[in-house]
Amino acid sequence: MANLNINIGDLQLKNPVMTASGTFGYGTEYSDFMDISRIGGIIVKGTTLRERQGNPYPRLAETPSGMLNAVGLQNKGVDYFVNNIYPTIKDVDTNVIVNVSGSEVSDYVATAEKLNGLDKIPAIELNISCPNVKEGGMAFGTSCVSAVQVVGAVRKVYKKTLIVKLSPNVTDITEIARAVEAEGADSVSLINTLLGMAIDAKRRKPVLSTITGGLSGPAVKPVALRMVWQVAKAVKVPVIGLGGIMTATDAIEFMLAGASAIQIGTANFIDPAVCVKVIEGIESYLNDNNFSSVKDIIGALEV
């Protein structure tokens, strides 16, 4: 049996499959459908310093092979997470990782500090790439200067594994990846959603309340694969790949392109038990192809 263990910084994953923030709630939403402790890492909903109501309805537009969302980081704030949600998920026997977002550098820092004290949260994922909030979010992730500011400031206060989630809505994603690596990021995850738009021709109105939103699902997979491949060559830290992964084969493609781990996002909406199927599929692939460890396929693309 192939070994599925992967390390991301100090973070030890029992397998390379993680859930993408904003698609998996706090994990417990899925526990009727599978044993969620089998997942390598559960990245929970984006958390901000203060409660956010998010954007008005409608927040969703279906597209061929994907969907646009404009949720806008609805969450009850980090204190609510610490006091009310953390106690309900801390005993899940896998890595629970919190995605952190903010409007100002000081928000990110304060949120990260509060999470640093939680024993059972071994890592955070810094979201500098949300396309659905006016202030902050993606603005931090689209210039090297601001990305460096926020990652540098958080690195000073956050002692555990720091993953930085990158935006694809940039000219050269490798520049941003290198910049955040230099500030001490332990890993980069990519891609967040691609900025898109949907129009209702009949009503001559935008479908989303925010007009534009973030595209996810199989439609973005080729773009994500390309960016993971580019970034994996540009940085030394482990890369976490995501974007339209629906099957184990998709996940393996990302690892061949250079990802050390992968995240499953939108696919959770179609098949709430998809994560365990992907884990099993990766294991079968490794066994069928005589790989002793999943590490053997990272960046194993033959070009």
Partner: peptide, 22 residues
């Protein structure tokens, strides 16, 4: 009957505005 993706409270797309917020 709002537009939904997941149906299980994970994606937060189908919200309605209430006295307790979205």
């Amino acid at each position: 009957e709002n537009t939904m993706a997941c149906g299980i409270g994970a994606c937060l797309c189908c919200v309605t505005d209430t006295t307790e917020g979205h």
